[in-house]
Every structure is written in C-alpha cells, then in structure tokens.
Design a protein around this nucleic acid. Structure first.
Lengths: 218, 218
DNA sequence: TAGATTGTTAATCGATTAACAATC
DNA sequence: TAGATTGTTAATCGATTAACAATC
C-alpha cells in the first residue's frame, strides 16, 4: 500500500500547477523552491515537502525545470488523461460550467447536459444538447461518463446522485447545498457557494470589529 | 486582543449552521453534541471544541438548543446584519449568483451588477440592472457596498479589484483564476472552480489506481 | 438524587517549518 | 572545485481527539 497523501497536500497541487503554467507562459525555464515560495507566499520548505510526496522532481544546485514539473503535476492530478463529464442542471450555474472553455484543455470533456425543465430540453449550449433526465443512465453507460456536476436544487441532488452512481459515475462535483452519502468507491467534491460567502462575511466582519489580522492560509 | 480563531474552525461554522437550520425545519428543539456529530460525521469533541471558541452555548445534561445555537452562529458569522454586495461580471456565473435567492435570506443584498459587454449593459436580472464598469466607484460609495463578487476573466480581475478596494469594498469574493494582492484590511475569499475540479479528478484517479481510501475530511 | 452532557484540560496526532547533509 | 539548492530528517507548531470534572 502506497503512502497516503494528505488532503492538504492535494489541495495545494492545482495552485502549484497554475503558477507553473504562468511561469511557462512567461518563458521561465527553471525555478527554485525559494523563488516559487516568494511568488506564491508559501514556504520553500512546504513546496519541497509537498513535491517529494510524489518523487524527486528537482535537481540540487539547479532547482526545478518548470515544464517538466508542470507535466508531472498534471500526471499526478490525472489531468493528462481524458475524463468524460456530464452536467446535471442546465441553469445559469450549469451553463457557466459548460461555457468554461479551460476545462477542455485539462482533459475534461463535457459529454452532455441534463435538466428536468421542458423549456430547456433541446436547447444547445456550446454545442451540447440539453437532455431530459430520463436518458441519464443510458447516456452515462454509452458515453463512459466518469464524473457528474450536480448544479441542481438540494432537494433533487441525493436522488440524482444515487442514479448516476448506479450507472457508473465515480466522481460527483456537488454544487447542491446538501451532503451526499456515497459508496466507498465514489468521491464527492463539494462546492458550497453559500458557505463560501458566509466565510467571507465572517472575515469581513471580524476585520471591522477591530480584530487585526487572521490566522492560516487562504 | 481577543483569541485568534483558526480558519479551520471558521470554515466549519457554515456547515453547523446548515445542519441546525435543517433540524429547525424538522422541528427539533434540542440536540447533543453526540447526536449532531453522528449526523454530520464529525467527532462530538470537535463540535464542542469549535463552539466553545465563541462561548458556552450549551447546557450540561441537556445539550444545545437548536434555535438558540442557530441564531448565535448567525451572529458569529455576521449574517444577522445586512451586507451590500455587487457582482462584477454579468455572464452565466454572475447571473447564477444573482439568481441564487437564498443569499438574500442571509442578509446579503445584491445592490448592482456590472459588465463591460455593451450587449449586457441595461439588461435586468432579478430586478437588478446591469451597469457599465465606468460607474463602479460612484455606485460603491453611494450604495455603501461592502463586498464584491468578481466573476470576470483573470486578466481583468486585479485591476477591477484595485478599483473596488479604493472605493471602499472590504471583501472580495473572487471567482477569477488569479490570486489577488490586497491591503491588510481587505479580505479575499477565493472560489477557484478549476482547482476544485482538479482535486476531484485526483481523487477519482487515485481511487481507480487501486489505492483504497482517503485521508482527511471533505 | 442520578443521569446526561457540557466545558475544558491533557494527550495524541498530523502538518508545517527549520536545518543540514547530499549532490548537482 | 565552490556555490546553489534539493531531498529528507528532526523540531516545532497547531489542530483534533480523548477524558473527565463540573454542573444542569
């Protein structure tokens, strides 16, 4: 059994990936953990520690090759492969995700969109036809759909989650304000926008109530 | 100087709040840390520890009064007060936020929406007119806007952030894929959707590569 | 009172940071 | 070789969990 990587480390990887992508665009070839740490406002120690969970990507006296590290992190995250995705809930949020072009660059292919609203069914968003949820199971199987984004109300989410999981979906990107119970071999990534806004609210308020700074990283 | 509350604690408060709200809807009057811990899949110890950062809300032998705790957490989060909000970027994501009715329940009032696209300017979303960004500063001052949601491309975000901050905004809800540099008295809450999707991807992939479970909480 | 459950201290666990030998 | 910077171990720090006295 391989060493377990902590969730804290995983959640930092996409940010490293983003910074490395920008460095590549700027034509930077190599970078030291120290330089990167200053740009990212983290410690160099943490960067080296994080990366070494997955292997020695650097070279003493030189640092890290930006391009190489970029592709290695892509491999670690699994975004070097293709992932078939569907979006359930074709409202504004669902359409926002469908329209977000960058996802396709990272191997995420939006295979279909679904809704229960008859007015939306048949519409085409970014070349993707909106379907009724009747077709869900068959579509998932036929298109080897691995992940589903749930941009639907919390009342519908648990039932729809069960259905897509039974049809073979392994990852749920959950925007509904509810915690989903899923089997051990399925993962849920929650995006609870209202909770995010409340956290912002807390921080704004405690700032104004005179408490100086804050603890912890963003 | 008051004791600093760790970010980990803060980020759990909205979830407690959500569960307590649901308990209220179900007509539950009191709950013990133990019962709540089972529903939420956290330890009872953590619940008591978290709440005691802010005061003794419970009663020995009884537990916690659901309604009381609910309103106390609202006070802690600052969502018992009104907060004026604007949305900059009236695309799908901006509109999704504007349409999300629940925010208004929690004291968040969307005062205005802004965009640079002339096609969108003048349109009305949920009773809110979309304005051009020329009017930004004046609008913020006149409407006592405290927070701004940035649903714009990463290229525009830093400049717009600077402008709203200069006009008095204290909290930025940042959906752009860029890290914003802000003064000490301004807070940024990031919602980086692409990073969230990458985390999901990692977890789906490592699940499939045979590694059994995971560490840490969602 | 007896039972239940909190508030809080102490123990454990994990994550971050510091330090430095290895090595390019 | 000398200088730079990693990989990695050890030290520190913080967060979570366990335990239990206080108390309703």
């Amino acid at each position: 059994m391989e060493k377990q990587i902590s969730k804290a480390v995983i959640s930092r990887l996409p940010r490293y990936y983003r910074y490395l992508g920008e460095l590549m665009e700027d034509g930077v070839e190599r970078i030291s953990s120290n330089e990167l740490s200053q740009r990212m406002h983290v410690t160099a120690s943490q960067i080296r520690q994080d990366l070494n969970n997955f292997g020695g990507f650097g070279q003493q006296g030189y640092g890290y090759n930006v391009k190489f590290l970029y592709t290695e992190i892509a491999k670690i995250l699994g975004i070097d492969r293709q992932h078939n995705l569907i979006i359930i809930g074709a409202g504004n949020l669902g359409q926002a995700i469908a329209n977000y072009a960058n996802f396709e660059k990272r191997g995420f292919v939006i295979k279909g969109m679904f809704d229960i609203n008859p007015r939306l069914i048949g519409l085409v968003v970014r070349g993707i036809e909106i379907r009724g949820v009747e077709d869900l199971e068959q579509f998932i199987i036929e298109n080897e759909v691995q992940m589903a984004a749930l941009t639907i109300p919390k009342t519908k989410a648990p039932e729809i989650a069960d259905r897509v999981i039974r049809a073979g979906v392994k990852g749920i990107w959950n925007f509904a304000h509810v915690d989903l119970n899923v089997p051990d071999d399925v993962v849920v990534e929650n995006v609870h926008l209202s909770e995010s806004l409340m956290r912002l609210c807390y921080r704004v308020c405690s700032m104004q109530d005179g408490k100086s700074g804050e603890k912890g990283a963003s």
